[in-house]
Every structure is written in structure tokens, then in C-alpha cells.
Design a protein around this nucleic acid. Structure first.
Lengths: 136, 136
DNA sequence: TATTAATCTACTAAAATAGTAGGGTAATAT
DNA sequence: ATATTACCCTACTATTTTAGTAGATTAATA
């Protein structure tokens, strides 16, 4: 299941992408519009800032805003930051690879075989989907 | 992340598929060979029996065995029984559909849009992969 | 200087995961 | 008849994740 963190993060990004003017939007506004706990959203946006796609400004007139065009924001980065590894087992993870401690041979492991396929197909979706695709 | 339940279930199924003779294999043997807690495996195999692909026999000479040919056992069924819905959000689930309580409009929801694509791609993998594909 | 709004730190309650431990019942082969 | 093995329960536990809440601090702006 997708975590609420990811769900809210995606909704917030889409909300920001939909704004006409690229002025900063306060967390409170996003939280209210998208029906998200403000404090929770606070930490989510902070996490998302780490992608480099999101900028923030303090003080009056401050808030969050997109740095890049939605079409330049692929879901791969967003999902990795919010949800963690795209792979369902660490032994097929590109960015978070780890050997399974109980697995004697990766090449002959049935779980490895299946999860490799699943990862590839998910990765293809995330790579070919940008924030712009989610706006319409 | 894939649960150990699913991981162990897949390993057990593959183990059974690899047997030359289709005689029943005791749980204890599978557990030992695949390095799985016997009690845990017990409950997993019981769950898997619900798919109709797995048979069991009590008493001496008893155990678990495949009813169908591995090539006729698609991962869709196996994954649904072990891991639950293939969809990452209930609003895109085929077998476990539920409306999101916080979502005013499914059609315009960015999460819905993305997760629909992810579900489709995962489903394609699971539908086109059978137990036979995991054996080699 | 006051206000606004992001940032940081710490804590918590509930649920899920991954088991362990132990009991008894039912079927079957020898 | 006995041993073996699946089946089916209950109950407990330890760890991790999830989804927050609360409150203090820092920075920018009017």
C-alpha cells in the first residue's frame, strides 16, 4: 500500500504545479485545499525539498513553489524520496542494493527473478511519467 | 517492501515445482531446505492451498504437492493471496476496490492517475509470469 | 518591531510484521 | 495400534512503520 506520506506529497506537488503564478504558496493553504494535516504536510514538503524540484521562502509572502517545470519532474525521484526504494526486495534495488542474508544464490532465486521484472515495469512507468502528466 | 510471508510462499512453491516426482513433501522438509520457520511456513501453505493450485495429504507419506503444472500457475493469484491487492491504492484495485474517503474526484486525482499506470504494469508482469518461469 | 511562515526536535498512539510457543484433532500408511 | 503428518486454534512478543501532535526556533518581510 502507498503511504499517506507519498499520497499527500503527490497531491501537494500537483497542487503547486496547477498554480498559474509561480508565487510561493504557504503550507497552510496547501493543507487546507488538499485536506491534509498541516504539520504532517510540513515534514513531507521538507523531505521533497531534497529533490531540488521544490523551493521555499520564509516570512510573509513565503511558502513553497516549484523550481522546475512539471514536465521536467519525473516520478522516479519523487517516489524514491517519498516512498523509498522502488524495488520490492533490496536484492533488485538499483539505488538501495543489499544482499538478502538468507539467499544462497541470487541468480537462482525465484523471488529475485520475479521482483526484477516487477521493478523494471514500475521503473518504466515512473521514468515516463512526469508531474505534468498528473495535472490534467 | 515484499513481506516475508510472500517471499517464503514463493520459495516454497518453487521448491515444490522443482521436485521430479509429484509426491507430497512434508512441511518440515520444505522449511529445512528453504531455511524457513516451520510454524510460519505452515500458515503460509495453508493460505496458498486456497488458490486451488496446491494440494495436501495428511498422515505418513503426506505433505504438500502441486495440483497443476507450474506453467498454469500465474503470479496474479499467488501474489493476491499472499501479498494482498496488487494495486497500491484501493481506488485503482480490481478485486478490492474502495473509494478513497478523502478524495473528492477520482478522475482528477493525481495519485489515482499514477497508481493506475503502476497497477497496469504490475498486472501485466504477474499475468505473464507463471511459476514455471521462476524455476530455471 | 511585529508578524508571518518555514524549520527543527521530540514525543506518541496505533497498526502491521514476523514471528514463537503450545495445544489439540484428523487422516493415513505400516 | 502406532507413528506420522497435516490442520487448526489460542495467545503472546518484539520490532518497525505509520501518521501524526506539540512546541520551540529561526529567518524574512512589512
Amino acid at each position: 500500500m502507498l503511504s499517506k506520506k507519498t499520497k499527500y506529497g503527490l497531491k501537494a506537488l500537483t497542487f503547486l504545479a496547477k498554480q498559474d503564478k509561480k508565487e510561493p504558496i504557504p503550507i497552510a493553504d496547501i493543507a487546507e485545499q488538499e485536506n491534509i494535516s498541516q504539520k504532517f504536510l510540513e515534514s513531507i514538503l521538507l523531505t521533497l525539498r531534497g529533490t531540488g524540484y521544490l523551493g521555499s521562502k520564509k516570512g510573509k509572502g513565503g511558502g513553497y513553489y516549484l523550481i522546475k517545470d512539471p514536465s521536467e519532474i519525473p516520478m522516479t525521484t519523487v517516489m524514491r524520496v517519498l516512498e523509498g526504494p522502488i524495488a520490492m526486495v533490496s536484492c533488485v534495488s538499483l539505488n538501495f542494493y543489499e544482499q538478502c542474508e538468507d539467499c544462497p544464490d541470487e541468480q537462482s532465486c525465484s523471488v529475485h527473478k520475479l521482483m526484477l521484472k516487477v521493478r523494471d515495469s514500475a521503473l518504466e512507468v515512473y521514468r515516463n511519467t512526469t508531474l505534468a502528466d498528473l495535472m490534467s
